[in-house]
């Protein structure tokens, strides 16, 4: 059974404190509290509409925060408490933090106006300030790692979905993120290429100590790579445990029912 790399980390790498998220009048997340340790790989499961993806989007600051606080390495990401008041953090600080977070999307979102290589080196060069030669070397290594060494100069539109997603993973890894967010990365793929993408991710999990926050419907993948699984329902975490416990002996009836339904379909 895999365990987090360091036994006693000083500070959680992600912390949600009393987080609330509303869209218009609909409350998606409510009084959400959890922490994720450095190097930990956590999978969020739950029925659709339970707020899993919203959690990832909040960490990436793609969505605004209705109430509460999110901390990355102890530093406030969106709002901070100052003199007892809740005030937005500076854009600069937010950018400093989000630079350490990478995300892979369900729909890949590769830039169609750039080749595969350009997609991967764009942000490292212009955001991190890495020199071009090093960025290209690193991009080649990453493409090797995701099994697409010969697609350097291809256009994203000329690639299959599975290939596009593997490039997107390489693009996210090229930023050397401390936290990697994986948002239903296999949901838009044909079943036969899902294994390729998951294999790449298993490989990343095995060879790096990047913290991962994962939303997926691939239960066997979740079971293999996660240190911990959190079950969400109605915007709340109803159960959080190691995958072995969740999948074989969940404490909550709701979790049992959800897993029974999902695993029957699989």
């Amino acid at each position: 059974m895999p365990t987090p790399t360091d036994a006693k980390p000083a500070m959680p790498v992600i912390e949600f404190r009393d987080v609330e998220k509303q869209f218009d009048t609909k409350t998606v997340l409510k009084e959400l509290n959890f922490t994720i340790e450095r190097g930990e790989r956590v999978t969020l499961i739950g029925p659709s509409g339970s707020g899993k993806t919203t959690i990832l989007r909040l960490v990436m600051t793609l969505e605004g925060l209705t109430d509460g606080y999110i901390y990355i390495d102890g530093a406030p990401l969106v709002y901070e408490q100052r003199d007892g008041k809740r005030v937005p953090v500076s854009k600069r600080q937010q950018k400093l933090l989000t630079t350490r977070i990478g995300m892979v999307f369900q729909q890949f979102n590769l830039f169609p106006n750039m080749t595969v290589l350009e997609n991967i080196i764009e942000a490292p060069i212009h955001v991190l300030g890495i020199n071009k030669r090093d960025a290209i070397d690193r991009a080649h290594q990453l493409l090797e790692k995701v099994g697409l060494p010969d697609k350097t100069d291809a256009h994203p539109t000329a690639l299959s979905g599975g290939q596009q997603q593997r490039v997107a993973i390489a693009r996210a890894l090229a930023m050397d993120p401390e936290i990697l967010l994986l948002d239903e990365v296999t949901s838009a793929l044909d079943p036969e290429v899902v294994v390729d993408v998951l294999q790449v991710l298993r490989d990343v999990a095995a060879t790096t100590d990047v913290t991962m926050l994962i939303v997926t419907h691939e239960m066997s993948f979740a079971r293999d790579v996660s240190h911990r699984v959190m079950m969400l329902d109605g915007g709340k975490i109803i159960e959080s445990a190691d995958p072995e416990t969740i999948f074989t002996n969940p404490a909550k009836e709701r979790t049992k029912k959800f897993l029974a339904a999902v695993l029957r379909d699989a």
């Binding site: 990436m60 793609l62 995300m103 999307f105 590769l110 764009e122 693009r171």
Partner: peptide, 15 residues
């Protein structure tokens, strides 16, 4: 998704 990808890569507005 394109706008979100630029946010995920921390790109500045002009960039």
């Amino acid at each position: 998704g394109q706008w979100e990808a630029t946010a995920a890569l921390s790109m500045s507005w002009p960039h």
